[in-house]
């Protein structure tokens, strides 16, 4: 599963971040861009099972970030509704978010020359 690979990367990254922290780590926050189309329940389950082993006593939280796109041709900015895409498109974008350029057009002018303003990445934050 893609979620398992992400959970593993998140755990490894959180460990590294914890070392750079001056305080004792208390909370790991994972910010997931919705463009990644990650199954949050599955990711959450992986983190629940493994975090206590890697960082005992540390809580975790998953926050999602809705995708906002901007058209580079006409500057229109909008929030992408992932549920309006075909299952094929969602699957492709799940693996490779940049594949969205093959499936999504600007609702104003029809261009595929788009920029993802928000909601693409996954970030890990560790709070002390």
């Amino acid at each position: 599963m893609h979620e398992a690979a992400i959970a593993l990367a998140v755990l490894r990254e959180a460990e590294k971040l914890a070392k750079s922290l001056a305080a004792k780590p208390k909370l790991v926050e994972v910010v997931v861009g919705e463009l990644q189309n990650i199954d949050i329940d599955v990711l959450s389950e992986y983190l629940r099972m493994n975090l206590r082993e890697v960082m005992p006593g540390v809580e975790y939280r998953i926050t999602t970030e809705p995708p906002v796109l901007r058209c580079e041709q006409c500057s229109h900015e909008w929030r992408l509704d992932m549920s309006e895409l075909s299952p094929d498109a969602r699957e492709a974008i799940h693996f490779l978010p940049e594949a969205l350029h093959a499936y999504v057009r600007c609702p104003k002018c029809g261009s595929r020359d788009l920029k993802v303003v928000r909601g693409r990445e996954i970030r890990v934050r560790v709070y002390g």
């Binding site: 593993l8 990367a9 990254e13 001056a22 996954i122 890990v124 934050r125 560790v126 709070y127």
Partner: peptide, 18 residues
């Protein structure tokens, strides 16, 4: 004192895959 640290986990992911 730094009490929050943030980063992109992909590098750790790449390291693991490679």
């Amino acid at each position: 004192m730094v009490n929050v640290a943030e980063s992109d986990p992909r590098l750790s992911g790449v390291e693991y895959q490679l």
